[in-house]
Simulated scan of single mutants.
Amino acid sequence: MKITVEKLVRAPGEKVWLAYTTPEDIVQWNAASDDWHTTRSNVDLRVGGAFSSRMEAKDGSFGFDFAGTYTQVIPKQLLEYSFGDRSAKVEFIETPDGVNVRVTFDAEETHSLEQQQQGWQAILDNFARHVEGKGK
C-alpha cells in the first residue's frame, strides 16, 4: 500500500530543492517530533547514489539509520529512491504560491498506516517551516 503526504512550501523552487537535498539542511529539519533529531546526513545526489540520515531520540534512548539509493533524479522536479524493499517518490510541483512537495511511499507493517502518515507528514511540515524560515 502507498501513502502520500504533501505540503505547500512558500519558497522558490531552487531553495526548496537545495533544502531537501543538502546534508547541512537535512539535519535541521528531518525529525517527526521535538524529541528526535538527525545527527548526520550524507547525500550522493545521482541515480545509483546513496543517501543516509542518522535519526536519534534526543535522550539517547534509541536511534536508527534511514538509508537508500536514488533511482531517479530530476533536479527541482522529482526524486525517487529505494530503501530496503520499499520505495518512495518526492515530487516538487511549482505553483504560483510556492512548491507543493508531495511524498508517496510504500507503507511498512510495523506501524499503523495512520502513524506512518502522521510521522512522514510531521517531517514534511518541519521541512516547510525550515525552508520558509531561512533567509532569502
Rank of each mutant, 00 (worst) to 15 (best):
L18V: 08
K76Y: 13
K136L: 10
H130A: 14
T21I: 00
E56L: 03
D59Q: 04
S53M: 15
M55P: 01
S82Y: 04
N42P: 00
V99L: 07
S53C: 09
T69V: 14
E14V: 12
A88M: 10
V5P: 06
I3R: 00
D35R: 05
Q77N: 11
E109T: 13
G119L: 13
V103T: 10
G60K: 04
F51M: 09
F127Y: 14
A88I: 05
Q28H: 13
G60R: 12
Q77F: 03
E14T: 11
E114Q: 14
R46L: 08
L18F: 02
V43Y: 06
K134I: 11
G133F: 13
A57K: 15
F66P: 02
E6N: 07
E24T: 13
D106H: 07
Q28N: 15
R54S: 12
F66S: 05
G84S: 11
D65C: 05
E56T: 07
K76S: 13
R46E: 11
R40K: 15
I3Q: 08
K7V: 08
F92Y: 11
K134T: 12
G84F: 08
G48D: 04
F62Y: 14
E14N: 08
A57R: 15
D125W: 01
L113N: 12
R10S: 08
L79E: 11
T4D: 04
R129L: 10
L8D: 01
Q72P: 03
D85S: 13
S33D: 06
K58V: 04
D97P: 01
D44Y: 02
R86L: 14
V99D: 00
S41P: 06
P75Q: 06
D34I: 00
V131F: 03
L113I: 08
D125T: 09
I93H: 10
K89C: 14
P96S: 03
V131T: 13
E108Q: 10
K136E: 13
Q28I: 01
S53K: 06
T38R: 04
P96T: 07
P12A: 07
T38F: 03
K136M: 09
F105S: 07
A107F: 11
N42S: 12
Q121M: 00
T110E: 15
I3L: 13
L124M: 05
Q72A: 12
F127T: 06
